[in-house]
Design a protein around this nucleic acid. Structure first.
Lengths: 346, 346
DNA sequence: GTGAAAGCGCTAACAG
DNA sequence: CTGTTAGCGCTTTCAC
């Protein structure tokens, strides 16, 4: 199984290497006869064109990068990433692209690896996870000529293309649900307010309250950072303020909050109802099972790839922007059954 | 910022392109003077050699692949993968390699993507996650001339190189700990017995029992599949068999088991002590906090890369095999304090 | 429909 | 120490 080249195949088929190349690249203008003969030889020999040579000649690598800037420190704990990666990988497979992963740990990484990402480097384009405000690497990318698309709305979108989930309405529907269930003092634990996801979910919370004629009460708003422990401490802090429901911007924080509530001798949802965000697997198995907002993360990944390929092919203008809707998954923690029971007693 | 080539840099520096190439590749035999001049120009122009051209000429891509065969269906739920990926990515960055991710979903993916992985394709070598017995893709890889190393001992190692965690001793230390704490009826929930990790942890369990003069009791052994729900049902099934401790081959299963135990009106660790495996973040926050076996997963990732680079450079023989030790992390669920208290009362 | 020829941008002998 | 010279294996005009 030594290494065949186009030339070898051409010789075997009694044609020139151009013709073989045409067959491989599915160009028209090849006689049916030659095409058949060539395909046969390719199959029987297990020939595959050398990818480096092809990249060099065609000026495209058929590789796209997935960049996780160093400020994203949750890659290893947040199930969002594996899911996103799954969607991206799936779409790459479908489109015959290869996925390269750029996980930065240090500033040096970001500097050192940029050449591999930049236009005439390794990749044809890149997906970048959007992150905290003012991410340095994002700015570098924006100022380069690398085709890219952001996963999640960037802090300063400018002309950047991005694909996101409708965090505002996701949060809105969750809080609105609590309102309709009859809760009156609905607090929130937000995500970090230097991320667009954190901001947007907080916006949705406020809007739902305002639309329902409620006022915003700072004493039952706490800023978290998406981690379980921040949920725990935030809840602990707010429990004395007499709330009857809590919209929590991530399931991980919700799990922490439930623990704090339980330790305070209170019950979910009887004393405090809870709605989370993400629909992670643990949400389903929590006690009580978590009512939460499900995001189409795999879809997001697929759309990111397709958007990027479109940009690679047709240029960055106009910016592509796409937002996916969410679903509210109603389980136990919002006290829906409780609310129904209560209503029936009145 | 148009595209510079070696030739351009050479012209600017008044030397030949070979000399520039030597500087870039840190070859000796370049006058200090020329080197300085060239480096200066490279820096000021922001020149970076074209990677495809370099790959073509040097016959190496400086890309390694991480292959997750389709039979690994836990990529998206098991935190093992993000951590492993982190270690691998980190080592790749350090060694100036790029990481490509091959996540297979279908059999077609495996067939279609093999060319990109095979010797004169895209990657210089690949790390493959070992998986269930008789994995098809693994066999394909083994029969090819692609340098590779397995993450975890493969089912049929043959001459394959691998890096693994010492699952036998990890389990052994966990069970031994329970024995020393004074438990007498120690059951287990195993992982799938078609994975080497599942088998090895089960071996460790049996060995620890035998070494301690205990007999193996089938009625308190249940075969799980590493998922939380399998832990739940396994525990439920075994509770009637009067066990006082349980070694559970994954934290996820342990979490499920705790839930089942609680629902049965029993307490951990008072009625049934528990030791898990993995030391996932939820283990620390579980109630009670989980005693568990911690694996050096990031280290594993780093070692995989270094082993692979060694194989790429020096060939696959002799097979490299490396096993990392584990640590027992003692928290609440094993009832250590309980045992101590008990002992003091006697 | 097909072949010849000219690169793509780099590395690596080889000769000096 | 440095330049010359061949490629690496493929794509892509341009003739025919």
């Amino acid at each position: 199984m030594t290494n065949l080249t186009l030339e070898d195949i051409a010789k075997m088929a009694g044609v020139s290497r151009s013709t073989v190349s045409r067959v491989i690249n599915k160009h028209p203008n090849v006689s049916e006869d030659a095409r058949r003969r060539i395909l046969e030889i390719i199959n029987s020999t297990g020939f595959h064109p050398n990818i480096a040579a092809r990249s060099l000649a065609s000026q495209k690598s058929h590789i796209i990068g997935l960049v996780i800037p160093r400020s994203v420190n949750t890659f290893f704990t947040d199930p969002y990433f594996p899911r996103l990666t799954q969607g991206i990988a799936e779409a790459c497979n479908d489109h015959d692209y290869t996925l390269s992963l750029f996980l930065f740990h240090t500033e040096e990484d970001e500097r050192k690896l940029f050449p591999r990402i930049s236009r005439h480097g390794l990749v044809d384009g890149t997906i970048i996870q959007s992150t905290y405000a003012e991410d340095e690497f994002f700015e570098t990318l924006r100022n380069s000529d690398v085709p890219f698309v952001a996963a999640g709305r960037p802090w300063h979108p400018g002309d950047a293309s991005y694909v996101d989930v409708d965090n505002v309405n996701g949060a809105y529907s969750a809080v609105r649900h609590l309102v309709l269930l009859g809760y009156r003092r609905i607090g929130t634990i937000t995500g970090p307010l230097l991320t667009t996801a954190g901001i947007d979910r907080f916006e949705g919370y406020k809007k739902a309250l305002t639309d329902s004629g409620f006022s915003i009460d700072e004493s039952i708003i706490s800023i978290g950072d998406f981690t379980e422990s921040s949920g725990y401490y935030s809840a602990q802090k707010m429990i004395p303020y007499n709330l009857d429901a809590l919209f929590i911007a991530s399931d991980n924080m919700a799990l922490g909050a439930i623990q704090a509530i339980r330790e305070a001798g209170l019950h979910v949802p009887e004393d405090i109802a809870i709605v989370g965000y993400d629909d992670l697997p643990p949400a389903r198995q929590a006690i009580p099972a978590l009512t939460t907002v499900r995001q189409p993360i795999r879809r997001l990944g697929i759309e990111l790839v397709e958007t990027l390929l479109d940009i690679i092919e047709n240029g960055p203008f106009p910016p592509r922007r796409m937002i996916f809707g969410t679903e509210l998954v109603v389980r136990e923690s919002c006290g829906k059954n409780l609310a129904i029971a209560r209503r029936m007693n009145n």
